[in-house]
């Protein structure tokens, strides 16, 4: 199955946050510090909550499933507020301001062992939690070699943020969707890098597997498992959940080490792998429902 409408609509969703706004936010955040800037957020969160009908609908649809009960306005506010805080925190993470946070790592031992043997691995992320916190942990704290495979729009957004705060990070982006994207990714893996890939979003034209997710069906991409399988690389799941205050919980979980995917068994193994990942993501989503940072109704096209 090749996805078209779902991913297409997601990418067509208007992007909130222009480069100017981004620069303004970064300037304020750096000058005032995290505590004071955090205090400025409630009116901004209310503004977006009031004015962004589509994001509100997506938030409501998500929370109602993730919480297992109808979402209230208070829930929606909390969801938008969590997103705003993690967005603000990106500035400090990007700048390597580790001192702003209380970051706790869970399950990083096996990942450190993989890095230590120089194997490289696929780091399977998602829209749950803050990818910036993970990136900061990898780069500034653990000093892991990190590369990230991102689609064009996200790569450009990330490049803008890097350019504004920490240009040294730009080299880690590999743009997906070029003929040689994965040849580049393979070279980084061969050199022992951790290759970050989103496990919950397919690019238009990517092959997907419909997976049970929070009581409905959502298409999950096959690509992460094919890439790891073709290269015989380990796959490690990860998410960085914001727990309020200064605290982030980073979870790492070895999914396969290595991922063995014989060509003849792909047709049966890929759906099983994607479903297993969806189940793990569901587990973390239920534990941190307000950490879902994809304000697009992921189910609207698959019902």
């Amino acid at each position: 199955m090749r996805s078209t409408s779902a991913a297409g609509a997601w990418r067509a969703a208007p992007e909130r946050g222009s480069p100017l706004l981004l620069r303004l936010m970064i300037g304020v955040a750096r000058r005032l510090g995290r505590g004071a800037t955090r205090a400025l957020l409630p009116p901004i969160v209310l503004y977006f909550l009031a004015c962004s009908r589509r994001a509100r609908a997506a938030s409501r649809a998500w929370l109602t499933r993730a919480l297992g009960r109808p979402a209230t306005l208070v829930d929606l506010y909390r969801h938008f507020d969590t997103f705003a805080v993690t967005l603000l925190d990106r500035v400090y993470f990007l700048a390597g301001r580790w001192d702003c946070f209380d970051v706790r790592l869970h399950g990083d031992g096996p990942l450190r062992a993989i890095v230590a043997r120089g194997a490289g691995c696929v780091l399977l992320g998602s829209h749950l939690g803050s990818f910036e916190a993970l990136r900061a942990a990898a780069v500034f704290s653990a000093h892991w070699p990190l590369a990230m495979l991102m689609d064009n729009a996200n790569a450009q957004k990330a490049a803008r943020a890097f350019a504004a705060v920490n240009p040294a990070l730009a080299g880690m982006i590999i743009e997906a969707g070029a003929p040689d994207s994965l040849i580049r990714a393979k070279a980084r893996l061969d050199a022992g890098a951790l290759l970050g890939i989103l496990g919950d979003r397919a690019r238009p034209g990517d092959r997907t597997v419909p997976c049970p997710f929070l009581g409905a069906t959502m298409p999950f991409p096959e690509a992460p498992y094919v890439i790891a399988g073709v290269l015989g690389a380990p796959v490690v799941l990860c998410c960085a959940l914001y727990r309020g205050g200064r605290r982030y919980d980073l979870h790492f979980e070895v999914f396969r080490d290595p991922l063995v995917l014989p060509r003849g068994e792909r047709a049966t193994m890929l759906p099983a792998l994607a479903r297993e990942y969806a189940a793990r993501l569901e587990h973390y989503a239920r534990s941190a429902p307000y950490n879902w940072f994809n304000f697009y109704d992921v189910w609207s096209d698959s019902r």
């Binding site: 997906a176 969707g177 070029a178 003929p179 040689d180 994207s181 994965l182 040849i183 580049r184 990714a185 393979k186 070279a187 980084r188 034209g205 990517d206 092959r207 690509a223 094919v226 890439i227 073709v230």
Partner: peptide, 24 residues
């Protein structure tokens, strides 16, 4: 797609000893 291109590049490397370089 790019997965196909990766597989083709791996097969070409195996068959002909031609490595398609990442920085090319």
């Amino acid at each position: 797609d790019s997965i196909d291109m990766l597989e083709i590049s791996l097969a070409i490397g195996k068959q002909y000893g031609v490595a398609l370089r990442a920085d090319d």
